[in-house]
Write a protein that binds this DNA or RNA. Sequence first.
DNA 1: GCGACAG
DNA 2: ATCTTGTCGC
Length: 231
Amino acid sequence: MRIARTINENYVKSRVPRGFNLSAARAVQRRLSALVVEKPLSESRFVAGLDVAYVGNTAVAAAVVVDSISKSVMDSAIIYTRVDFPYIPTLLSFRELKPMVMAYKSLGRTPHVVMIDGHGIAHPYRLGIAAHFGVTMRVPTIGVAKSLLYGECDVGADASPILDPATGDQLGAVIRCGAGVGPTFISVGSLVSLPDAVRLTRELCVSSVMPLPILMAHRLANKAKKSVKPQ
DNA sequence: GCGACAG
DNA sequence: ATCTTGTCGC
């Protein structure tokens, strides 16, 4: 089944907080996206996964490092922080980047690559949260999402490229991690190649739409969330 | 014309 | 994402 999505900028504009300069944000996204580097990974054994859960305006961000050989957890970290910016499609990093960076920095071990719950360059301005993280932190990142934000692809296929409807450029790939599981959307964040991103994601997808590192981070964040005072 | 839109 | 019960499937 072929799907295609574009963004309604008026909808985005209607949700932006009073005083937020949207065109300036778009300019920043365009400028940073030019810094995205696509290259093969030199090492990919230790893979971190990042995810964020919420209790009101408190973000609970978790980072988990998985050994892709043994599939075991090598390290993990959780941080809690207040967020003020709302969720708005195409502006996710303005809400979640800081919590993710804090969780990442709390790790005691430096992973070879970071998988992030969200898109990389499969974004109307080529700067999804995984690309934003990779460019600002200067570490290899891969964007892995459960649904498409921008682009067109065939979700029925075993593997299909995600194309930019405006330019025809390839933005990423959508794959199936198994029968009965939904599609997994993959795109480069920075400092990795798409083939490496797809290979590593396939390797770490164990009967789930999400790869092990992100899945573990998701569970950890949700577990930690339970001990946060409701607001 | 209305609706859809990573998390 | 989060708010929420029971219910269907493996």
